[in-house]
Write a protein that binds this DNA or RNA. Sequence first.
DNA 1: AATCGTTATTCACTAATAGATATAACGAAT
DNA 2: ATTCGTTATATCTATTAGTGAATAACGATT
Lengths: 118, 118
Amino acid sequence: MTDKKINAKYTVEGRVWINSENFAFTGQGKIELIEKIKVLGSLRKAASEMKMSYRQAWQNIDKMNKLSEKPLVILKRGGKDGGIAEVTEFAENVILAYKNLQTAFDIFIKEQTKKLNI
Amino acid sequence: MTDKKINAKYTVEGRVWINSENFAFTGQGKIELIEKIKVLGSLRKAASEMKMSYRQAWQNIDKMNKLSEKPLVILKRGGKDGGIAEVTEFAENVILAYKNLQTAFDIFIKEQTKKLNI
DNA sequence: AATCGTTATTCACTAATAGATATAACGAAT
DNA sequence: ATTCGTTATATCTATTAGTGAATAACGATT
């Protein structure tokens, strides 16, 4: 017989990210941004699609690139299409690591919510 | 032989809290505030000792009281000492739950940092 | 060299947050 | 009734964060 006494009023929530030298260089928003860049090949379009200001998007990418070992997105201006935004293989690894983390965290949250005793 | 190949450049970080109907009614700051209230018997002194503005402290307590099932801190004004702030038994339970959660989360963070593969 | 759409950067404006200050309300103790 | 130190609340200011607009810089393609 399963225990049905679940208190749904209180839940555990939280956030996780990966840090590099005092800067959270991942986080849901940034991961999503990189993924959109990968699809669209453009920082401007990616930001626009996320309804994130271009400025903020650029700053995020710039910080991530500068504060991590290797760049995550290579931005080039000029050229045929005005410029390109290229997602590096390193970024792919980071995204994978973040997703694994997030998956584990989701499980953690569920467990802890179940354990809540208030 | 222990694996010494630890990449200390990247770490997992995060935050957890307990939610009640769309309001994070716990969090390190709020828990600390309640604990200080318990010791000092005064919201004003507790806020002052934490270098938190009285206004913010009062608002936090007020929200917590209103948005949770039972009040966590009972505030009374007037009287011999000008007023009193009383921590309820319910608040004690919440604090305990939060600390258990935090302990588990600390372990989670360590594990995940160790697993980081970037 | 002219064009194009992007990256890169600045500036001014706005909204939101935090803080400080001041003061009213309170009621047990005297 | 007066006093006291607190709770409770309003108001103003300073700081910060975020947005939007405008524009310069770029370089492969034509």
